[in-house]
């Protein structure tokens, strides 16, 4: 049985942990609300762009555009979007494992582009080629970063340094559900338009030019959307993990308090026994 003072010290230490995790949870919750707001706000644009691109891509000439043309895959590139910080439950581990699986799958050589420090820390010591990495994304991934990444990706795709580019990130469904997933980005293949009936559009200028301008935007939007989804997932993972940690430390404190009380009680009993037996001894002598 540990000494009373030791138990007391542990209780104090765990109370500190409880405070810190509780505060982290509140911070993550507040940031999550904002991240979620940004995610919802960005969805209409993403949807509309995909819609228009999808409709245009039905045209046979669309297959000729370099960004949409698929070719034999000799080299794959994966873009892993992870967090910069830990203490977010299984968030980082989940996306990293998915990335590992994707890299191991398939015959063709594959390399990585990493967003977020945790991803870099994991893969730096492994035998995977990391083409480029982006760190310190902050809590508000901005459009200019998405653009930079998208331009780089389109660049390597067009230079044939990559024949297929996929995004690996955690998709945000709700505060309690985030699913890591890999989806193909390049060659671009916007989801075909739902309406099968062909509406005759007037294009200004001609369709192929419009599509040519829309595709890079569509690519940027996909990257931006992925960054936002990943950020919302990270924050909600952290919120849930910190909530669990705060609850667990409450449990530990309860247990420790119980053993503290037991220890104190037994100390008192021992003391009483000593006093009583001392008194008995004196009486017997006298």
């Amino acid at each position: 049985m540990s000494s009373i003072r030791e138990i007391k010290r542990r209780i104090r230490a765990i109370k500190n942990i409880q405070h810190v995790t509780g505060a982290m949870k509140m911070v993550a919750a507040a940031k999550l609300r904002r991240a979620q707001g940004r995610l919802w706000a960005a969805r209409p644009y993403a949807q509309k762009t995909a819609e228009v691109a999808g409709r245009l891509a039905l045209a046979p000439s669309a297959r000729m555009l370099p960004l949409a043309a698929s070719r034999e895959v000799k080299k794959r590139v994966y873009v892993l979007i992870a967090g910069d910080r830990g203490l977010a439950g299984a968030y980082n581990a989940n996306v990293i494992h998915l990335a590992e699986d994707c890299l191991a799958r398939g015959e063709q050589p594959a390399s990585l582009i990493v967003v977020g420090r945790k991803g870099l820390q994991f893969f730096r010591r492994r035998s995977v080629e990391i083409l480029k990495y982006y760190l310190e994304i902050g809590d508000e991934p901005d459009l200019s970063l998405a653009r930079e990444i998208a331009r780089y990706l389109m660049g390597i795709f067009l230079e044939e340094r990559a024949d297929e580019v996929s995004l690996i990130y955690s998709r945000f469904y709700s505060a309690l559900r985030q699913v890591p997933q890999a989806e193909k980005l390049l060659p671009l293949s916007p989801p075909p338009a739902e309406t099968s009936l062909e509406i005759d559009y007037i294009y200004e200028p001609e369709p192929i030019k419009v599509l040519e301008a829309i595709l890079p935007r569509y690519c940027e939007t996909r990257v931006y959307q992925a960054l936002l989804e990943a950020k919302a997932s990270e924050l909600s993972s952290r919120m849930v993990a910190m909530d669990a940690a705060a609850k667990n430390s409450g449990e530990v404190i309860e247990k420790l308090t119980l053993s503290f009380n037991k220890a104190r009680q037994s100390a008192i009993t021992t003391e009483l026994l000593e006093v009583a037996s001392g008194a008995e001894a004196l009486k017997a002598q006298g």
């Binding site: 228009v52 007037i202 200004e204």
Partner: peptide
């Protein structure tokens, strides 16, 4: 301000896509 000059859209316009 469309790619090929300003254009006006009124209700029941024909489908159109422009920069």
């Amino acid at each position: 301000p469309g790619a090929e000059g300003y254009l006006g859209v009124l209700p029941r316009h024909a489908p159109l896509i422009t920069f």
